[in-house]
Amino acid sequence: MERRISQRYGPFFEPIHSLEREYQRTRPNNAPRSLVLNTGTVVDAAGSGYVELGKTKVIVAVQGPRPPIRIRGGVENTMNGRITCEVVKSSFCYYSYESTRMANVGRGVSEEERLLSTRLVRVFEPIVILDKYPKCSIDLYVVILEDDGSAFAAMTLATSLALADASIEIISVVSSVTVAISTKQEYLVDPDRTESECAVGLITVSLPLHAAQLCEIQHTGKLSIQVWLSAVQLAVEVAQTIGNSMCQFLLQEMEKNETPSLCS
């Protein structure tokens, strides 16, 4: 039995070439899809966030800081906290051969989900101030409700919201965006599923908003160095605008929830 991760979501009802020809992007190349943000979606969690990027929908719940549930050898004695993550793709998040087969077999953690959770932990390890939570674990539970491209970017945004909602100390809000390079060498910001599949290159960049640094870059596809660098540049710019609107949203939410102080 071979274990493979399929990057393609097919099979479609028509071959990919014809999809590419007929497909028309309805918004400008450098515009992301409409963004919906929400916090406090999950009542029982310490903090939660919900993000919609077009049709991509992701919900994240944060539990903790709390004592680790599953203690691994040696870990409980560390003076730093740790982050664990569990990603679940809903069985209806996209139509694919893999997912239909999965539904029949009954599912454990798939390889793709495991990779996504390691990636998410790695993005947030330098961001969360783990020194402040010794011997604790911060657990992230991610559900991808629908995946119409750029799911990892949506996951990162939602986790940022959830961490802020849980009042966990972080050095900055993390913003993230995916850029696809189409066969015509166009840069498509925040591609949907069709665009990601037809792309020759797909770059996801995550960055903390208040530091001139990058948290994570993942790129697949073959590109020359020049093209790649300019695509990263574009991704950084767009991620910053997305991050700014996310900060505004968080400030609004905070003002809404602020209870009037007793003294005045």
Binding site: E125, I203, H219, V236
Partner: peptide, 23 residues
């Protein structure tokens, strides 16, 4: 040819460093 086929990075790194490293 020096074309990039896959990139994965994590940890906070300066964006300025990238172009130097790529050469």
């Amino acid at each position: 040819n020096g074309d990039i086929c896959h990139v994965y990075s994590f940890g906070l790194l300066d964006a300025v460093e990238l172009s130097r490293l790529l050469t």
